[in-house]
Design a protein around this nucleic acid. Sequence first.
DNA 1: TATAAGTCAATATC
DNA 2: GATATTGACTTATA
Length: 306
Amino acid sequence: MNTANGVKAAMDLEEETTIKELIGKDGDIENAIEQAEIGLLDGFLDFFLQDGAAPEDPLFHLLDQICTEDVVEKENDENKDPFGNGFYGQQPSYAVSFGHYPNQQADSSFGPIRKTEKKKKVSKPYEIAAPVHASVHRDVTAPEVRHILDFPVADAIDTKRTVGDVNNWLKLNGVNQTKFAEKVLEKTQGHFSVISRNPAPWEELLAPGRAVFVRMYNWMKLSDEEKMKILNTEKVSEKKDLQEKKKKTRFTFSKEQMEVLMGIYEVNDRPGKELIKELAEKFSLSPNQIKDFFLNRRRRAKKSNL
DNA sequence: TATAAGTCAATATC
DNA sequence: GATATTGACTTATA
């Protein structure tokens, strides 16, 4: 035996030993290999789902083939290229998992909107029936849900329309704000109520504000079955520290205080330090309380005038 | 550092 | 019971 063969034999022996260790003495080698292949495929899919692949990439076509085997192809006139991206009625291959859609492809949804970028005209974005994929047949984990709902969008979202669509869906399906806010947005009912009544335009929102609308937008892209699945997902963590939290009472300005503050606000919505201090002393409150009153007033007045 | 925006969560209102 | 309002806190921005 020459050196090269010797090395190979040693490597083979080591590999065999490792496999045996992995599957045990009476283990099923074929099954182990199959599991390993599944693992590899998962990694393969992750590459496309998370990092993306260019259509000219040869692997793209390979993945396309693999994925389309599971897709029921249904083409009719209404369904021809609904995304306007050349996929003609079916999702691109990187959209195999529970709701990734082509017009959501972007580096980030939170970066500035490029001025040179031509806005795509997205008509009837939610009327396209979202295919139900394999993952809907099993339990969806919280990280998977986040991955789906936080998937970046390529274009500016029409916040008013998105919120309107969400509200219609909730009404139609008898789902209340609390459930939707907590399960889908991971926000409070009150917060959802505020933003859904008066959604700020996309351009005015900062990253965290946009993230909420990205979730709503992605949510609307899912099939009803997928939506219900997420809504009915049990939340495992949290809650217990909520019970430990001391309940604090919320201060409310008295009628008299409110009259004075509103009177000032009408003529000057930005009182200076001195006036704030004076008001705080008059009402035996902290300057921050007065400052917050004017801050909240200004912000909410601005919103309701939109 | 001041202000704006995002948010929570108590509680008022429907 | 569900939704709307709002005081106060946190984080981002100018």
